[in-house]
Each structure stands twice: as structure tokens, then as C-alpha cells.
């Protein structure tokens, strides 16, 4: 199975203290994505300028002569490079590093169990993405191993997958963090690269299962952050009697700016300012106006508040 990163002592991916696994590969292409390195299912590599000591080791070990060292640092020719990762292995400073690694379910489970003592009754392990459900068969093996340890498991999913994948994992999972980004299918197509039909259908089916459900909506300037969208999602949740424990409105953040740069990708949100707390509050009220005043609806994340005070 192909993993991007394992984040221990994670506090942002479900209840309690958790270990979160980020998998490689995602069916969606949301334009604001905070983990652009997780989109591709391929192993990729990046070069981090501040770590590089310009020793040229990577250039010299490349048998295909794909790398060059110039004024702007290390570059590689995407046609010539076959991602053998010899440069990554040889780089003394980890400036050249791989994004994604292959690991067996047993190896992954052994790593994930290490923080069991910290999970307590609340915490556990969250499988996140990319999209965890794309590798659901392997994840099932991991779940079986972890279930023996009595560890609570959560899925963090975009929902844009065949429902059978959920059916395979549901017996092992206690909680699903479900992304609901845009209620309008055309807008979803425009911003995320696909329609939301399957996502909505899957959510309705999941809501009938005995499982804890957290809904998460990224609040992105000019795409998801309209009151219409939030009212639409809220109406959908109400009309389909979807019982959720929490609905989190997650404020846009721009900490991933340099990731795009390193991947050589343009990011349309590069200079977009953060949301304001007043707008986040207003959206929360919008949601509550449909679903009733409800503590389970809240907003999280960084906002422009400091700038405003300054």
C-alpha cells in the first residue's frame, strides 16, 4: 500500500489524540487542496532549497543524467527521470526527498500501534488522504490487525468512491469524517473535478449505518464560502435526516503555499487572504438557522483575526 505520511499525536483529525495516516492518490482535484502531494497515486519527489548544501551528490548518482544543478538549485527533467529515487537515497541532507512510500499492511499496523497508550477512550487512528478508500482492500488488512488491539478507527474520506468500499471497512470503523464541500453539483464539477452525486448518495446510505459521523466542509473563499452553499448543505442534511455528531466548517488556510511551489504547480489561492472570523461565524449561524441552534455545528481553523486587530 502507498502511504504519504504518518502523523503522530495528531489533534485535528477526530476526537482525542490520534495517529493519522495520509494515503497517496485522490479521485478529486479540489483546487484549494492543502495536500497537493497526496493527489497523485504515484511516488513523487521534491527538492527543499533550505536543506540543500549544493554538494551535487544527487546529480552525480543519477544514471539517466536527469538532474542538473543551477542558479535556482536542483532541477530534474520529468521526461528523463524514471523515479528510481537513487538521488533521494543518496542525498545527505534529505533536501531531495520522496513523497510517498510503499509499505505492507503489517508494517503499517506495527507503526500505528505504537501510540496506543495515548489514545485512551477517545482517540485512535484516522485513515486519511488523498483518499483512503482507493486502497480499501489493503486498509482492511490493517484494520483487522488493529482491531485485535482494540484501537478505535476512523476514516476521513471525500466520499467519491464506490459504496462497496465502505461496506468492506464499516465493520471495523467507529467514526467517519465525511467531506461535504459543495451542494451544487455543477459547482462541484467545476471546483473539484467531478460531480457530487455519488458523494451525496453515499452519505445518505452511511447515515443509515450504525456509525458516528462528522461532516466537514472546507470554507474556501469564493467557492465554498457562500451562504447559499452552506444553507444548501444544511438543507440536504436536514431533509435526508442525516444524524451527525459534528459538522465542522474548516476555515481555509494557506500554509501549503510552498508545497505547490515545490511541486512546480501554480496555486490560484497563493495570495488569497484568510477568512474573517465574522464570516465564519455568519456561516455557522446560517447552518444553525436551518438545523436549529446546535453546539455540534462549529467552525475551526485560522482566521484573519490577528490582522484585523493589528
Amino acid at each position: 500500500m502507498r502511504v504519504l505520511q504518518i502523523q503522530r499525536m495528531s489533534t485535528e483529525d477526530g476526537p482525542g489524540l490520534r495517529t493519522t495516516v495520509f494515503f497517496k492518490g485522490c479521485p478529486l482535484r479540489c483546487q484549494w487542496c492543502h495536500n497537493p502531494e497526496s493527489l497523485s497515486g504515484q511516488i513523487q519527489k521534491e527538492w527543499i532549497d533550505v536543506r540543500c548544501i549544493r554538494c551535487g551528490t544527487c546529480v552525480s548518482v543519477c544514471q539517466r543524467h536527469a538532474l542538473t544543478m543551477g542558479e535556482e538549485g536542483i532541477r530534474w527533467d520529468k521526461e528523463t527521470c524514471n523515479f528510481c529515487l537513487a538521488c533521494v537515497k543518496a542525498c545527505p541532507t534529505d533536501a531531495m526527498s520522496a513523497m510517498g512510500k510503499d509499505i505492507t499492511p503489517k508494517e503499517l499496523a506495527d507503526e500505528l500501534v505504537k501510540d496506543k497508550a495515548y489514545f485512551g477512550s477517545e482517540g485512535g487512528i484516522t485513515f486519511s488522504g488523498g483518499e483512503v478508500m482507493l486502497q480499501h482492500r489493503e486498509v482492511l488488512e490493517v484494520c483487522k490487525l488493529l482491531r485485535k488491539e482494540g484501537i478505535s478507527l476512523a476514516l476521513d474520506t471525500s466520499g467519491d468512491v464506490n459504496y462497496e468500499a465502505f461496506e468492506v471497512l464499516l465493520p471495523y470503523v467507529d467514526l467517519i469524517l465525511y467531506d461535504l464541500k459543495l451542494i451544487d453539483s455543477a459547482a462541484h464539477q467545476r471546483w473539484c473535478g467531478s460531480e457530487n452525486k455519488i458523494i451525496l448518495e453515499n452519505l445518505i446510505r452511511l447515515a443509515n449505518e450504525k456509525i458516528r459521523l462528522w461532516i466537514r466542509t472546507p470554507i474556501i473563499p469564493d467557492s465554498t464560502d457562500g451562504e447559499e452553499n452552506i444553507r444548501g448543505i444544511a438543507t440536504f442534511l436536514r431533509d435526508h435526516l442525516i444524524r451527525f455528531e459534528r459538522w465542522e466548517l474548516c476555515a481555509f488556510n494557506n500554509l501549503c503555499k510552498d508545497k505547490y511551489q515545490r511541486l512546480g504547480l501554480e496555486w490560484r489561492y497563493r495570495d488569497t487572504p484568510l477568512e474573517t472570523s465574522s464570516h465564519m461565524g455568519k456561516l455557522t449561524e446560517t447552518a444553525q438557522s436551518v438545523l436549529g441552534k446546535n453546539e455540534s455545528i462549529s467552525w475551526t481553523g485560522m482566521t484573519r483575526i490577528e490582522e484585523e486587530q493589528r
Binding site: M9, T11, G16, L17, D115, A117, Y118, F119, G120, E122, G123
Partner: peptide, 16 residues
């Protein structure tokens, strides 16, 4: 919410 997570860390520290 985060304070309770920090508490979970301390409880884990007791064990590990």
C-alpha cells in the same frame, strides 16, 4: 477540546 487531548498525552506518558 485540545486540553482534553493534552490530558490524554499525560495519561499515555504514565504508561510509556
Amino acid at each position: 477540546d485540545h486540553l482534553s487531548k493534552f490530558k490524554a498525552f499525560l495519561k499515555g506518558y504514565v504508561h510509556n
